[in-house]
Amino acid sequence: MPDAVFRTEGLTKVYDTGTVKVQALGGVDLALYEGEFAVLLGPSGSGKSTLLNILGGLDTATGGHVWFRDRDLTGLKDRALTAYRRDHVGFVFQFYNLVASLTARENVQLVTDVSRNPMAPSEALDMVGLGARLDHFPAELSGGEQQRVAIARAIAKRPDVLLCDEPTGALDSKTGVQVLQALKRVNDELGTATVVITHNVAIRKMAHRVIRFQDGNILSTEENAARIDPAEIEW
């Protein structure tokens, strides 16, 4: 068993809107391992994104603990969380979140400018098959291409973990497959622990492990004995 990259104990998150209190996480105990490709499945509002945000240091838990390797992330101040994100975490979002005024290369450079041991932006874009579209602005790229730029941006810093929130949510199946292939390649070649949130049940088959969420709690965890290639996924 490889070492755990993330470990949570009784992790809770309550959103207080003033009038209503919403329990997004209800005491999650979970471990995610080095090199693992994990898929988080579950309906909207089941707590997947909240968990991902807390793992990635974008949000803080209301209760419980979360460790990154040996480091307790719970209770870290904003400055420490910023440093943590900068040094260890790569994010990929559903809506790509590219900066419209920067080219593909420059969007990746946003990350390489602030990381300690980054790869060249062109190398990262090569990995996702966009070596030929370095100087295109987001508006000149298709949705799939934009998402791959986002992946290149996430991996360019050689992160320890790659956290993807619905990376194919806004894509059709053909471009979605290209994106998943890029994720798989990163996981295989760089050994980056990858967590993918999705609604898409078909994607579960390419994961090492599938974790199902419901109402802020883990419903089930299953390991795939045989993983399939993204090319074989259909939806």
Partner: peptide, 10 residues
Amino acid sequence: GLLKALGYSN
């Protein structure tokens, strides 16, 4: 949000 996620400081 993205810049913060990428580790840019406040």
